[in-house]
Design a protein around this nucleic acid. Structure first.
Length: 516
RNA sequence: GGUGGGUUCGUAUAACGGUUAGUACUCGAGAUUUUCAUUCUCGCAAUAGGAGUUCGAUUCUCCUACCCACUACCA
């Protein structure tokens, strides 16, 4: 059986949106499940929409996610420009392939499947405006092409002259009339469309010597021997054209399978997920931070503290399910479990709460050594003086309280810095005369505890308080207040054991001195 | 407007003609705890509407409504 070759073909017109990452992920999973190749191709045929840095962003984002192309990008994340053993179909950037498309467009003209069109952009714009004024839509198609300026209507010598003199012409597809196009989609099943509802799309533009998406896409998929095309739902309306193009070239036997993914929808209201929703609702819509030409900053999942494993996991579950109740999958497990027939047809509304939950799960599963490294990277100097063993104990105890590693400092600061102030409400509640007399006695008892470990401290404290019939809640909470500065945190004995006897006594003394 | 796609708890989804319509997130209640968190238990909550096919429709067909995409010399 032929090796599966699946491609992701983004356009570098801006940062890759999380929906785009999901498309890339599904392509990657589908390719690898069958032992096939995942190919990255850059579709930069629109010279007017080029955005500096966008291509690098796409490559870096995919690498962060662990989605490495088997073909199309080398180990350094650069687009390959010349063919090699590993990159036989190079180059993979369409702007570098511009030389190959014209002959395919002209082949179609020769076959009578396409024609030269000389209408200027302004002429077409005014035609559209005029139609709109009458509440109609102007369409360049079988009904109108006969009255427009093209090689179908103009005399041959005029066509030859214009081809020579003008640089404004295009090659348009000559959509066949009244033909039912029967298509199959791996996700949506059988679809039929009548060709009369289509328009004569531009295939190639003389002005910049570049093909449009449709031609470049079909030609490159054919040349690169792509077996499966998995792309966003926005392409479904042009699937008939693509089928027609494969037919016109005589490539129907090697036409790839198509699968159209539903869109990611905004968490509330109507419509697809957009950058604005992220700003408005406080979550990233891009994998990585992005700063546009105007200096506008868009936050990224990476910079927000998501683990890439969590990010791809949550993306995978947005529109796909394994058919079991398992929710947590590594990339490798996803490769094993993925299947296009379990991809959901309807649009998936993004849920920021669930996204956080995924990261929390990965934080909990994170090996302590890795978590220590995360913590040190985030907090540098503040924790440099502490040992891995100490930080490890602290994080083991506190990590269940966090969704993100960057929340850990606020949760654990008191393990690294003694409290400077004491929560006023708690002081008022617990620091009563009765307790003021007891605490010094507790301090003396603490001083005598040996060994100073959690169990010993726990029983010693408990026995001391109950045998003296002191109020358990007030005494313990006062102790906590002295150690932490606020009325929350882990068990008293747990903390004391980690602090050590010396630091514990010191904090009690400082608090007594400060509060009087 | 036209063409195509879609529609199960608030959200993501399961149930590929027969279930008390399941699970997760969120939310609520309770238990545990010296506090907070965790954990555990319980709970709230859905088949868009209408016809039809069938002994039986979440599931198949049609209609309506609503949502989405496309309708560029953009991808």
């Amino acid at each position: 059986m032929k090796k599966r070759r699946v491609r992701f073909a983004p356009s570098p017109t801006g940062p890759l949106h999380m929906g785009g990452v999901r498309t890339a992920l599904y392509n990657f999973l589908y390719a690898h499940q069958a032992g096939g190749d995942f190919i990255l191709r850059i579709e930069d045929t629109d010279s007017t929409r080029f955005v500096p840095g966008a291509e690098e962003y796409i490559i870096e984002a995919l690498r962060w996610c662990g989605i490495y192309p088997d073909e199309g990008v080398d180990a350094e994340g650069k687009v390959v420009e010349t063919p090699s053993e590993r990159h036989p179909y190079a180059p993979y950037r369409q702007s570098q392939r511009r030389g190959i498309y014209r002959k395919y467009a002209e082949e179609l003209v020769e076959k009578g499947c396409a024609y030269y069109a000389f209408d200027t952009a302004e002429e077409l714009a005014s035609l559209r405006a005029a139609a709109e004024a009458e509440k109609r839509t102007f369409t360049y198609n079988q009904a109108t092409r006969g009255s427009l300026r093209n090689s179908l209507t103009l005399p041959a010598d005029e066509v030859a002259r214009l081809l020579e003199e003008s640089t404004a012409w295009t090659i348009r597809f000559k959509t066949p009339e009244n033909t039912v196009i029967k298509m199959d989609d791996l996700i949506r099943g059988h679809i039929e469309v009548n060709s009369d509802t289509l328009d004569d799309k531009v295939l190639w533009k003389r002005a910049d010597e570049l093909p449009t998406y449709h031609l470049a896409n079909v030609v490159d998929d054919h040349l690169m021997e792509i077996t499966d095309v998995i792309r966003g739902e926005e392409w479904l309306p042009s699937l008939p054209l693509h089928y027609l193009l494969y037919d016109a070239f005589g490539w129907q036997d090697s036409r790839p399978n198509f699968a159209h993914l539903s869109l990611l929808l905004k968490p509330d209201g109507k419509g697809k997920l957009s950058k604005r929703d992220g700003d408005r609702l406080g979550f990233p819509v891009f994998p990585l931070k992005w700063v546009n030409a105007e200096g506008e900053v868009s936050r990224g999942y990476r910079e927000d503290g998501y683990y890439p494993e969590a990010f791809i996991n949550l993306l995978a579950m947005l529109g796909w399910n394994p058919g079991t109740e398992q929710e947590l999958f590594s990339l490798d497990e996803l490769v094993q479990a993925f299947s296009l027939d379990r991809v959901v047809k309807s649009g998936a509304r993004f849920n920021p709460d669930k996204a956080k939950w995924f990261n929390q799960e990965y934080l909990r599963m994170r090996p302590t050594e890795a978590l220590i490294a995360d913590f040190r990277a985030l907090n540098g100097e503040k924790v440099a003086a502490f040992s891995d063993a100490y930080i490890g104990q602290v994080l083991e105890m506190m990590k269940e309280r966090a969704h993100f590693a960057n929340e850990l400092w606020d949760l654990t600061a008191f393990f690294f810095e003694a409290p400077q102030t004491y929560d006023e409400a708690s002081v008022a509640k617990f620091w009563k005369d009765e307790v003021k007399e007891i605490i010094p006695k507790v301090r003396e008892a603490v001083k005598a505890i040996e060994p100073f470990d959690k169990e010993t401290i726990e029983t010693a404290l408990h026995d001391l308080i109950t045998s003296n019939e002191w109020p358990m809640g007030k005494v313990m909470n006062t102790l906590r207040l002295f150690l932490v500065g606020v009325s929350k945190g882990p068990g008293i004995a747990d903390m004391m054991a980690i602090f050590g006897k010396e630091e514990t006594l010191r904090r009690i003394d400082v608090a007594i001195a400060k509060l009087g």
